[in-house]
Design a protein around this nucleic acid. Structure first.
Ligand SMILES: [Zn+2]
Ligand SMILES: [Zn+2]
Length: 987
DNA sequence: TTAGCCTTGACT
DNA sequence: AGTCAAGGCTAA
């Protein structure tokens, strides 16, 4: 079993049922993955086999890892200063957690209705949560769905599960390009033959051949079962979950929520930028610091302490770091940076970080301040970015953005609230959307139905966004559902996961992120749509859109860069059209636009995005039946009306990328009513990336788009499904069970504080705000909504660019570079700040003496930051999501002199993708990295070692329980740590 | 399996 | 009563 698939397949794809797969945690996020493989990643190839079980290895591995780790770690950066800073932070009581708390609050709100209540039956839908994952290279995507529990238990029908997996061959190529992947198919594929192929693929299949068959390949499918199958049961939603679910889900919201208000305002200003990013990372937050300076002030308050606190600390830390690192490099501008590297290992990381962070700019700021600058930059950059990479684009301009905004909408109804969030997030607009998705409901959707909507005209979903927290609110139901999902997850997973969610949640915000947008964002953008509702905060929907658009345009230019990537995607023009749509797009217009997935006629708003009836049905079948499709060709198959039947793996992947939400599928299969999923967290969008062929991809996503973005960032975590093969295929898996699967308490505790990595909305806002200054501004435009939208739009609009691959982008990029760097710096600052907060709240870390804590932080901060960046970038093959919206492609990195670092990071990310590292694994690995006892000067090395051991055990138990088919996963995860360390060194 | 059309049912 | 999104049904 292990693997997946091996089967042969004839066709390009193979399907398997998988039941299990679990998807662990990651629910939503799941980003899709990556499908595309980026070219480079090839590395993965090697591993791909990963499957092999080498044995568990746990021990074995562990040993290695540790050692390696240590070694690496050792590097300690050293800076005393850092230490000081760190110390400071550590000592203070921190508030740390508080932030998180917020979430909860949110949650509640959201939940309201439904859920619980609903029992009545309501409608609630359950939200299933699901996660998806995709691996890029590897290819397999897994989706899991959980349901939330929910309400009604009943029902459900369940299914059995079974998931099936199917592989499709893709052409190889896909791989290649990174970004895009498109491929054409046919033929090629080489992969088949060899491994090569894209990354992932590998193995098994051989067949290939055929596959390709004609064009794309379709190939035949093979089935196989095996693979994942786990049980799939459907679970009914259990009631259980529900509760949990609720809570958790909420969290996300909360996160977002936090931002909200202030944010909104801020956001606007900021623009979105980023939005969202939610990411975790988010550096944005960082900005805060800067912010301080900078602007944004107002908002800030909100931030709860954390920010403040963090800021200072962060700054200090940063300073230290910089000093250390910096030395080496002088700033020189961002550009160069290259990293000299020298410095010790530690330094390396730092370097990288710096680089990433932006040395250049950063430095300037250096000290604390930097942040500010950076922030600003960030702002620009950030904007979205996430995924896309693009940078910053601010909010962008692009029409897309506009669109996004539009979409974002969240749910209609509630909209208001949401919108705010969105705004807040900024970007998120979209986010909201998704998250809020529920809201979506309002939309009209279905064109098919025909009803149309008139309503509004423009919808601005985005605005809607709403605060996360809130979000949902409105519809409570929905949320609740989500919650469930999460909850479910929760059950399974803790919120933590959610936390990310939050990020995601912000997600909605995310959406904002333009970058990502690209993918997703773009989509949304495109869509735009309308909905009436929504509106944003500010307002009004319609207006918003337009405004946004306008803004977007302006921004666009700036951002172009981001878009670059997008651009490629752009291809999709078609969609563009849709997207582009002018601002106020009406629903009908949207409806008239082509399905973002296949280009067919949009029939309405389905599962989070505007799509055609066939894609709606396909997504439903895939998720409900838990099929796992694996693309044999590298996951780059084009998805068009003519080819959509050929490779379900790629089609499904595209569905996810475009923003379809697993949570929208009701496990209990109840009909009617409104959905709630807000969910959103999602990732999806982000992922985005262009979908393959399509490049285009973009598209319409709905509102949510934004969110997605955010989500993404967060982490993409994904889960993976089991098997793994490398094949790039995708395999969706549902995992319901996961929920059930036990999660080691320690792991859960770690996950519970994971949200500390993410920024708060507020922070984001602040950051964004700052950032906004620059570029985006435009967006800032007025209402929050606009902002959000803008952001999103921008991303979308530009869409194109950014991504790395494309060469062109460079020029623009260059211009942006500085910004980019600065952003990076800001991000880094933020992150460091967050990192400290996180450490302070970490179960295993709390018991360690402060001195040792400092030593550990100094030794591992770089690895941790890089790791978070890489994890976040799992959904964006070919590019590293620095933060919010920002993404950096290898080409861009080279221009900045960071090529080596980014290349390593991309390789590392590819491994994460291949291994389908899920969020729990990710958090556990971070702790393991942090607790590397080789850190110099440990007073209580044994204690640290013992703590690390606990984390290792938790991870091992988790991987064995959740990925029984991949017994070697634990070992493989540990084997990645040295690589991470090396990456830092590389600089 | 696909995908068009129908039925549901929360919400407006 | 209308809207709309989710699930169901079923001819291809
Ligand atoms: Zn379609
Ligand atoms: Zn394919």
């Amino acid at each position: 079993m292990n693997d997946t698939m091996d089967t042969t397949l004839t066709g390009s794809s193979v399907s398997v049922n998988n039941p299990l797969h679990h998807s662990p945690p990651a629910p939503h996020w799941g980003a899709p993955g990556g499908g595309v493989g980026s070219p480079r990643f090839n590395n993965s190839h090697h591993q791909q086999h990963s499957q092999t079980p080498t044995g568990s290895s746990a021990a074995f591995v562990s040993g290695k890892t540790k050692s390696s780790m240590t070694a690496v770690t050792s590097s300690a950066v050293g800076g005393d200063a850092l230490a000081n800073t760190v110390m400071e932070q550590l000592r203070p009581p921190d508030t740390g957690g508080s932030d998180s708390v917020g979430h909860s609050s949110v949650a509640s709100s959201s939940i309201p209705s439904c859920n619980k209540g609903d029992s009545s039956g309501c409608g609630s839908r359950r939200p299933p949560t699901s996660s998806v994952v995709t691996a890029s290279s590897g290819a397999v995507t897994v989706i899991s769905v959980q349901h939330g529990g929910t309400c009604k238990p009943a029902a459900d029908k369940v299914q059995p599960d079974d998931g099936k997996t199917i592989k499709y061959y893709q052409s190889c190529n896909g791989s290649v390009v990174s970004g895009q992947g498109v491929v054409q198919s046919t033929g090629k594929c080489d992969l088949s033959g060899g491994n090569t192929g894209v990354g992932g693929m590998t193995m098994p299949i051989e067949d290939e051949e055929d596959d390709v068959s004609g064009s794309d390949g379709e190939v035949s499918k093979i089935d196989f079962t095996g693979v994942n199958l786990r049980t799939k049961k459907k679970r009914v939603v259990g009631s259980e979950d529900s509760q949990d679910g609720f809570d958790e889900p909420e969290r996300p919201m909360s996160w977002e929520g936090e931002l909200s208000d202030a944010e909104m305002s801020i956001v606007t200003g900021a623009c979105l930028n980023s939005k969202q990013d939610h990411e975790e990372t988010s550096m944005e937050g960082v900005q805060i610091c800067g912010v301080n300076n900078s602007s944004s002030p107002s908002h800030r308050e909100d931030n709860k302490h954390p920010l403040k606190f963090g800021e200072s600390v962060v700054d200090k830390v940063l300073e230290h770091v910089r000093s250390k690192q910096l030395h080496h490099h002088p700033q020189a501008g961002p550009t160069n940076n290259i990293l000299p590297q020298n410095s010790t290992t530690a330094s390396d990381l730092p370097l990288l970080v710096d680089k990433l962070l932006g040395n250049g700019g950063c430095y300037n700021t250096t000290p604390s301040h930097s942040p500010v600058l950076q922030q600003r930059h960030m702002g620009h950059h950030l904007k979205h970015s996430h995924h896309s990479g693009n940078q910053a684009v601010p909010p962008t301009p692009s029409p897309d953005s506009a669109i996004h905004s539009a979409y974002s909408y969240s749910s209609p109804a509630q909209s208001p609230v949401t919108s705010r969030h969105g705004s807040s997030h900024g970007l998120p607009s979209s986010g909201f959307s998704s998250p809020y998705t529920p809201s979506l409901s309002r939309n009209n959707s279905d064109a098919s139905q025909y009803g149309g909507s008139q309503h509004s005209s423009c919808y601005s979903y985005s605005s809607v966004s709403v605060s996360p927290t809130q979000f949902s609110p409105t519809h409570s139901p929905i949320q609740s559902r989500h919650m469930h999902g999460h909850g479910a997850v929760g059950a399974g997973f803790p919120s933590p996961v959610m936390p990310r969610g939050p990020d995601f949640g912000s997600g909605p915000g995310n959406a904002g992120s333009p970058l990502h947008m690209m993918a997703g964002g773009a989509i949304y953008g495109s869509v735009s749509v309308p909905r009436p509702g929504i509106v944003n905060v500010g307002g009004n929907g319609d207006e918003c859109l337009q405004q946004e658009t306008a803004a977007a345009d302006a921004n666009d230019e700036r951002e172009g860069i981001l878009d670059e990537k997008m651009s490629s995607l752009a291809a999709d023009l078609v969609q563009h059209s849709a997207l582009a749509a002018p601002p106020g797009i009406s629903r009908q217009q949207l409806i008239n636009s082509p399905c973002p997935i296949c280009g067919d006629k949009i029939s309405g708003f389905h599962y989070g995005i505007f799509s055609c009836e066939s894609c709606k049905g396909f997504f439903k079948r895939t998720v409900q039946n838990r099929k796992n499709y694996v693309c044999l060709r590298g996951s780059s198959c084009p998805v068009t009306i003519a080819t959509r039947k050929k490779c379900p793996a790629c089609r499904f992947e595209k569905c996810l990328k475009m923003g379809m939400k697993l949570e929208a599928i009701r496990e209990d299969r109840t009909r009617g009513g409104r959905s709630t999923y807000q969910c959103s967290y999602t990732l999806p969008a982000s992922l985005v990336a262009a979908p393959g062929s399509d490049t285009s991809s973009h598209k319409l996503l709905a509102p949510s788009g934004d969110p997605q973005v955010k989500l993404e960032a967060p982490d993409v975590g994904v889960v993976a499904g089991s098997s793994g093969n490398g094949n790039g295929g995708t395999v969706p898996v549902n995992s319901r069970h996961l929920d059930k699967l036990a999660i080691p308490q320690l792991l859960q505790e770690i996950m519970d504080v994971e949200h500390l990595w993410h920024y708060n909305d507020q922070e984001m806002q602040k950051m964004t705000a700052h950032g906004g200054s620059n570029s985006s501004s435009s967006s800032s435009s007025s209402s929050s909504s606009s902002s959000s939208s803008s952001s999103s739009s921008s991303s979308s609009s530009s869409s194109t660019s950014s991504n790395g691959s494309n060469g062109n982008g460079n020029s623009e990029a260059s211009s942006n570079n500085s910004d980019f760097l600065s952003n990076l710096c800001n991000i880094a600052d933020h992150r460091l700040y967050r990192l400290v907060k996180w450490c302070k709240s970490l179960p295993l870390f709390k018991n360690i003496s402060i001195d040792d804590q400092i030593s550990l932080l100094i030794n591992a901060w770089c690895e941790l930051l890089l790791f978070s960046c890489c994890f976040r970038s799992m959904s964006t093959p070919g590019e590293i999501r620095v933060s919010l919206g920002k993404s950096i492609s290898l080409a861009q990195a080279r221009d900045l002199g960071l090529g080596a670092c980014i290349e390593r990071m991309l390789n590392f990310t590819e491994h994460l993708r291949r291994l389908r590292v899920d969020k729990y694994e990710y958090v556990a690995m971070k702790v393991i990295v942090l607790l590397t006892s080789d850190a110099s000067d440990l007073r209580e090395a044994e204690k640290v070692r013992a703590s690390q051991e606990k984390a290792l055990q938790a991870l091992q138990h988790y991987t064995l329980a959740h990925y029984p088919e991949i017994p070697s996963k634990f070992g493989e995860l540990l084997l990645r740590i040295p690589e991470l360390q090396r990456t830092c060194q590389v600089g």
